[in-house]
Design a protein around this nucleic acid. Structure first.
Lengths: 209, 209
DNA sequence: GCAAATTTTGACCGATTGGACAAACGTTAG
DNA sequence: CTAACGTTTGTCCAATCGGTCAAAATTTGC
């Protein structure tokens, strides 16, 4: 484990932030191999050698981006808590996930790109941290089912389907907008999606009888 | 419109097939820009100039692959028909979609890669053929709702969520397997998913009262 | 069996890529 | 003011990229 973070000047902090912002834009639309250092440098408004002064390798930028991403990306699931009404908890989890798809589509696409290509850089995290977290939350959900608070299903696949449906609105956004057309595909599409997903998941999970 | 397909010898047909198969493998895991002609040539067991004898440009391979893909990819939705019981129709649509995710994961990933990067090569198809088809099927579903055969929801978002949940098992397969672990993540995962999705969509769509 | 057509190959090209490097430039503390 | 340190730039490099081309090898039609 790397211990202390390297000491950084004010300029270094600012420029590194600038580069990461630019890299997020470029990586999320072109993938890792599809993106060039020149593109990122131009998007960040600096020369390539200048960029390489702050990040020695292209991979370092991607890695830094990935580490930050995962923390914020899993935050909503971490908040899913045993205290409070189960259906309310699930409802707000879905809502938060959909809000992230709306507000941070680039982060979602960056993640999707990585997974699509076999997760070469974050496989250990998936099998470790992510699996642990999901197993833990699946146990919470299972508890709700045993207590008769929500209908019985597979908690893991329930979580997968929440991920899939919400992230669909960022990862496949162009398709969604193309199919919905100019009218229904406008800014209101996220509210329509929210209503639909609430009905699908929450109504579907209400305990039977 | 290009009219007649070019006349081709037996060798040309076979080798073109070989190249397309190899390209599907390479493109689906590395994306378009992330894949090189050399990789495809090696996977097809031939030299780069030899490959370029059959497809003059890298884009031509990708384009051919894409055209074929879309036809088979939309086949299940095309089969969704007004005749027959609505719930049965939807159930078998979901089942077919999940089977495709299981049996043709590379095709799904190729498509996902294209959409993720803004669908630069197939945008007209999305706004044209795909939108027309979805609108048509959404009307069918809407008819079922008006007739009280299934519960009322937004048909477009219903289709989106079926796409999202089924394709999740091919596009995000590594993540699914990592989270489920060796036991639950084995070959049985598709049957578990099928059971879960049936419950989520079919039970959820049964008409109220 | 042979000539024409098709297929395969090796050598090559210009452009782009990730990255190195030293020199020039700017900033700041004393 | 100036020396030390941090920042920026132009130039350069080897590797890889997509693609060309002429010549060699092979297949095909008769």
């Amino acid at each position: 484990m790397e211990g202390s973070a390297p000491r950084r000047t004010r300029i270094q902090q600012e420029k590194r932030e600038l580069i990461l912002e630019a890299a997020l834009e470029v990586f999320s639309t072109n993938g890792f191999r599809g993106s060039t250092i020149d593109q990122i440098a131009e998007a960040a408004g600096m020369s390539k050698p200048n960029l390489l002064y702050y990040f020695r390798r292209k991979e370092d930028i991607h890695e830094t981006l990935m580490e930050r991403l995962l923390a914020t990306w899993l935050a909503p699931l971490r908040e899913l808590d045993d205290i409070g009404d189960p259906l309310t908890e699930l409802r707000s989890y879905i809502r938060r996930k959909l809000e992230m798809a709306r507000d941070f589509p680039r982060e979602s696409r960056l993640f999707a790109n990585e997974i699509l290509q076999g997760a070469p850089r974050i496989m250990p995290l998936l099998e470790g941290e992510l699996k642990t977290l999901v197993d833990e939350k699946a146990a919470v959900i299972k508890g709700w089912m045993r207590a008769g608070k929500i209908a019985r299903t597979d908690p893991w696949h329930l979580i997968f389907s929440i991920w899939a449906t919400t992230q669909h609105y960022s990862d496949f956004d162009v398709q969604v907008r193309a199919v919905l057309g100019p009218n229904r595909g406008g800014d209101g599409r996220f509210e329509d999606a929210a209503r639909f997903l609430e009905q699908l998941f929450i109504d579907g999970l209400k305990p039977k009888n």
